[in-house]
Design a protein around this nucleic acid. Structure first.
Length: 282
DNA sequence: CAATCAACCTGGGTGC
DNA sequence: TGCACCCAGGTTGATT
């Protein structure tokens, strides 16, 4: 579910409600792997009475900054939801962790598939060490088209993967996932199987412009909700109404009417228009 | 080092 | 209705 726009939407929703609050206790924790490597009891005692300073995002990670330098680093993976409840609510079918706040509100972490994580990072541990190797933020102000072209040039010498796989590689560029990679390549009119070395400067520029546009548009639409994704208050996004190729296999391309095709690239379902995104190269 | 693939989980949809 | 099988927004660790 959650790619950069969805995580951004959740973080922006949580920030004003969590900043300045303190954690009273963890009142529910029914899937210990959620908080590993800590044991549930260690997680409970670590966050109890902590004061929340701020909430931020890095790539697809949600970072709840605690006063004193500790943090809770969350990742929603496929079906996670992190929601703020002004009034206490009973655990849902998929509630994994519930945190009680000092104003009587609750923070619920729900996750059907149990892939999501809430990891406590102590004040004496570097936050960066809790995150994997992550490439640049695609919407960072100082991440220019030339920076992207330089990344492509470097990667084309080291592996030369297909553009779809490069866009999904979080250590190359962070934040894009399967939806927005497909959407961006369609907007850029670049076939997902194109190898980096075959891309022209113009095509690289189009891909850069396209991922910025699709990410910004989705943030404006509060993300894409197919089934599981919810914002910080349980609401759905609306960007699913603006998708051009993702999960539109067999439906007409919005540009030219050609049926959208689905192939597998790097093990991921990939959607594209064979007319607007012709394959050239090898 | 890079590419591939299984694994982590559950549930919805489809076809027989 | 039952069942086998495929699919899903992500990441990681083992293997080749």
């Amino acid at each position: 579910m959650p790619e950069l726009p969805e995580v951004e939407t959740v973080v922006n929703g949580l920030r004003p409600h969590l900043s300045g609050r303190s954690i009273v206790q963890v009142s529910h924790l029914d899937w210990p792997p959620t908080v590993q490597p800590l044991e549930p009891e260690a997680f409970r005692s670590a966050v109890q009475n902590a004061h929340i300073a701020n909430v931020s995002r890095r790539a697809k990670y949600i970072i709840i900054h605690l006063q004193g330098g500790a943090a809770i680093v969350g990742h929603l993976r496929m079906t996670g939801q992190l929601t703020y409840h002004a009034q206490p609510a009973a655990p849902g079918r998929f509630s994994r962790v519930i945190i009680e706040l000092d104003n009587g509100a609750q923070l619920h972490f729900d996750d059907q598939r149990k892939f999501g994580r809430l990891r406590y990072v102590a004040a004496d541990q570097p936050l960066a060490g809790a995150l994997p190797d992550l490439g640049p933020e695609p919407l960072a102000e100082d991440f220019s088209r030339a920076d992207f072209a330089a990344l492509i040039a470097r990667k084309s010498l080291r592996g030369n993967p297909r553009i779809k796989q490069a866009l999904l590689d979080q250590s190359f560029l962070s934040g894009l996932g399967n939806i927005y990679a497909d959407e961006a390549l369609h907007l850029a009119r670049v076939h997902p199987m194109r190898q980096l070395r075959t891309l022209s400067d113009d095509e690289i520029g189009r891909v850069y412009d396209a991922f910025q546009q699709v990410l910004r548009q989705s943030i404006a639409n509060n993300g894409t909700t197919f089934s599981d994704y919810r914002d910080a208050f349980g609401g759905s996004g609306s960007n699913q109404d603006s998708l051009r190729v993702y999960q539109r296999t067999g439906q007409p391309c919005l540009n030219c009417g050609t049926p959208i095709e689905r192939i597998v690239v790097g093990g991921r379902g990939t959607h594209y228009c064979p007319t607007c995104q012709p394959f050239v190269g090898d």
